[in-house]
Simulated assay, not measured.
Amino acid sequence: MDGRRSVSNVVAQILVFAAVFSAFISILWQINSNLRAQGLTAGYGFLFRSTGWDVAFSPLPYTINDSYIRVLFIGYLNTILLGLTCLLTASFFGLVVGAARASNHPLLRWSGTFYVEATRNIPLVLQIIFIYLLLINAPATSHAANFGEVFFLSSRGVFVPIINIGILGNVFVALGLTLCLILAAMSAVKPGSDRRKYLLWLLAVAAMVLLFVVVNLAGRPAAEWLSIPKRQGLNFVGGQTIAPELMSMFLGITIYGGAFIGEVVRGGLNAVPRGTLEAAKVLGLTPWQSFFYVHLPQAVRIMIPMLSNQYVWLMKATTLGIAVGFTDFFMVVSTSINQTAHTIELIVVLIIGFLILNGVISFAMNVLNRVVNKGGASIR
């Protein structure tokens, strides 16, 4: 009896798969017939044609004679750079806000509540546009706001110092240093054997970052290691210019995402049993020691699954860059559709790109969840 049921289940699955596959092939055939009827041809051969248009921000060299496949890669790279940066900064803001919301100090709790309620109840696109309008109405370059002769703010953007190893090199260094801070924090809250393991990883990552910087700066005079923006006439030379479009996206997603992540952090902190915190107090731990060694490590186990959803959502929020003219992956695809009329092909590229990107984030968070909960997944 069980054998017949097993065979019938397999047959049913094959029939369902065949029906879905046939429907998919039928849809593709109909789409191809409609395109031919309109004198259009499907295919990805257009990717190797020159675009004829420029992009506002590119971490790689780009000219209007480059191909569509290169501009799509640049847009994808812009989305990755913006998304990863916003995830890191939003996580930091969320940790601070969540800790403030869960604290017993009335001023901290009320401040965190005001920030969350005032931020998450306003649509993200409105916040991005508002920040963008503030930035483009900043003082002209000749009267740029000066912060210690190192940072400058004007209507053309924010001018910041940069290591002379290129944009991607600086991003690699920033991510490496961030990873070092995370490993240092993990080593601080882990017991003996695990602490040594994280310290070894910390030293390895720090050595890789230092080696990368040394190799790229070797042979240059010390004066050329760091590029600092300097005023020259009506503009600035040196350093790195962060355009208003990129800055508004970064600030908007960071502030908005920090509010939601703050609520996740607050929920995780409040879910830790009070008995555990009282035990830490009895052992003589200070409030800061109790928070970093007992409260936060246990709350992280609860927060990670919810943080995964927030990170995926924040990465998808980068598509709002089209509202202020930031050349992210979505905007590049939209412009390419207008130029080539290859709508279906480019939408498929867009879908696959975000599936890969968010799939990597989900996979990384699942791995982190398994590592953190290895010693005991539940909090009771």
Results as ranks from 00 to 15, higher is better:
1 M>Q: 10
1 M>I: 14
2 D>A: 07
2 D>R: 08
5 R>A: 15
6 S>F: 13
6 S>H: 14
9 N>A: 15
11 V>C: 06
11 V>W: 14
14 I>F: 10
14 I>V: 15
19 A>V: 15
22 S>A: 11
23 A>K: 10
28 L>N: 14
30 Q>R: 14
32 N>K: 10
41 T>M: 02
41 T>E: 03
43 G>Y: 03
47 L>D: 04
49 R>K: 14
58 S>V: 08
60 L>F: 13
61 P>A: 05
63 T>F: 02
74 I>E: 05
78 N>K: 11
79 T>S: 12
80 I>S: 00
82 L>C: 09
86 C>G: 00
86 C>V: 13
88 L>M: 11
89 T>G: 00
93 F>K: 01
101 R>E: 05
102 A>I: 08
104 N>R: 12
108 L>P: 02
109 R>L: 10
109 R>F: 09
111 S>M: 13
111 S>G: 11
112 G>E: 04
115 Y>G: 12
116 V>K: 04
118 A>D: 00
118 A>H: 02
122 I>P: 02
127 Q>C: 01
131 I>H: 01
132 Y>V: 08
136 I>L: 03
142 S>W: 03
145 A>D: 07
149 E>R: 07
149 E>H: 05
150 V>M: 13
152 F>R: 07
155 S>Q: 10
156 R>E: 14
159 F>C: 00
169 G>D: 13
172 F>C: 02
176 G>K: 08
178 T>S: 15
178 T>L: 14
181 L>G: 09
183 L>E: 15
186 M>H: 06
189 V>D: 03
192 G>A: 13
203 L>V: 14
208 M>G: 03
210 L>D: 05
211 L>T: 15
216 N>E: 10
216 N>P: 00
217 L>D: 04
217 L>W: 07
218 A>T: 12
221 P>H: 09
221 P>A: 06
222 A>W: 09
223 A>Y: 10
226 L>V: 15
227 S>H: 12
229 P>A: 08
230 K>D: 11
234 L>M: 03
236 F>G: 00
237 V>H: 06
237 V>I: 15
237 V>D: 07
239 G>T: 07
246 L>D: 03
249 M>D: 04
253 I>F: 02
255 I>Q: 10
260 F>Q: 05
264 V>T: 15
274 R>D: 01
277 L>C: 09
278 E>M: 03
278 E>T: 04
278 E>V: 08
281 K>L: 13
284 G>P: 07
286 T>C: 10
287 P>M: 05
291 F>H: 08
293 Y>V: 11
295 H>Y: 13
302 I>E: 04
306 M>H: 05
309 N>I: 03
311 Y>T: 02
313 W>V: 05
314 L>V: 02
319 T>I: 09
320 L>H: 00
323 A>C: 07
331 M>C: 02
332 V>L: 06
333 V>N: 07
333 V>H: 06
336 S>F: 01
337 I>F: 06
342 H>T: 03
342 H>P: 04
343 T>K: 02
346 L>N: 03
349 V>N: 04
354 F>I: 10
356 I>R: 00
357 L>I: 13
357 L>A: 14
363 F>T: 15
364 A>T: 12
364 A>E: 09
370 R>S: 14
375 G>R: 06
378 S>Y: 14
379 I>N: 08
380 R>D: 12
